[in-house]
């Protein structure tokens, strides 16, 4: 029986879709059977980031309206052994779907997959309620900006209301040099306000934009910092304890040595 994890944030543009794509892909790289579900009906993006846009035949709404079977709507990502994708509809809007519909779909996916990653739309209205309906756990994505943290806080409250306990936090687009100079909220500050477990910190990385544009999740390119961060996050989801990566970007032989010894 698989586990359904919703990736949400409240605020738009903080990296929900990027995080969903990368976490899903990283879990697939680690040998898990993963299904990505895009619930952002009318504004789907996950297919583009994954580079699967041109392979969509049926979508979520087709499944709900029984135009096709669930298995027919799933798009297999051929780059990986066991990565599937259930796209959202682009021609409908969010009212075409009810929370119970999504719940039913997630429940019927669970026996066949280890992880079901649900990409949530921005906002806290119907789309959010749909996405959250079938989830067992939640990952809240926030950037270290006050507006984003405020919305994340609101969403955490709503998740508690929806009976999803202990959501985990990903702090995205971190710029270590700005944090150091005090121009950006630092990680401790964000954690102090949100008061939930930190799942990972993802540095701001140009590679993410680049790979998003060519439809290739960043984790596939292990040289980028963001890729390493997402791989670590995936391992933490599996229960490994992986220390937070050194964001200072100091290379140097000494730092490398420290890293090898596990004290860096």
């Amino acid at each position: 029986m698989g586990e359904a994890i919703v990736v949400t944030s409240g605020k738009g543009g903080v990296g929900k879709t990027t995080s969903s794509a990368n976490i899903g892909t990283a879990l697939a790289i680690l040998g898990k059977k993963v299904c990505l579900v895009d619930t952002d009906i009318g504004l789907r993006n996950l297919d583009v980031v994954m580079g699967l846009e041109n392979r969509i035949i049926y979508d979520l709404v087709d499944v709900i309206e029984e135009n096709c079977r669930l298995a027919q709507a799933l798009v297999k990502d051929k780059r990986f052994e066991e990565l599937y994708f259930l796209p959202a509809a682009q021609t409908k809007d969010k009212d075409a779907v009810q929370p119970e519909d999504i719940k039913k779909i997630i429940e019927s996916l669970k026996p066949d997959f280890d992880y079901i990653i649900i990409d949530c739309p921005a906002g806290i209205e119907g789309g959010f309620r749909n996405a959250v309906a079938g989830a067992d756990r939640a990952i809240v994505v926030s950037t270290p900006e006050i507006s984003s943290v405020r919305d994340a806080d609101r969403v955490i409250g709503l998740l508690e209301g929806a009976n999803i306990k202990n959501p985990k936090l990903i702090i995205n687009r971190v710029r270590p040099n700005m944090m150091k100079s005090g121009d950006m909220m630092d990680i401790d500050e964000v954690c102090a306000i949100l008061a939930i477990d930190l799942l990972g910190v993802v540095p701001d990385d140009q590679q993410v934009i680049k790979s998003g544009n060519i439809g290739e999740p960043t984790v596939m390119n292990p040289t980028s910092n963001a890729a390493v961060a997402y791989r670590n996050i995936a391992r933490r989801i599996l229960g490994d304890s992986v220390p937070l990566m050194n964001l200072d970007g100091k290379k140097g032989v000494f730092n490398k040595l420290k890293k090898i010894m596990g004290i860096g």
Binding site: R150, D151, D153, R154, I156, G157, L158, I193, A195
Partner: peptide
Amino acid sequence: RSGQSIHEDAPILFMGDVNP
């Protein structure tokens, strides 16, 4: 948390944070 509110007629001793 943000968007939540509590009210009591009695004085409140609240053990926890009140977020922005």
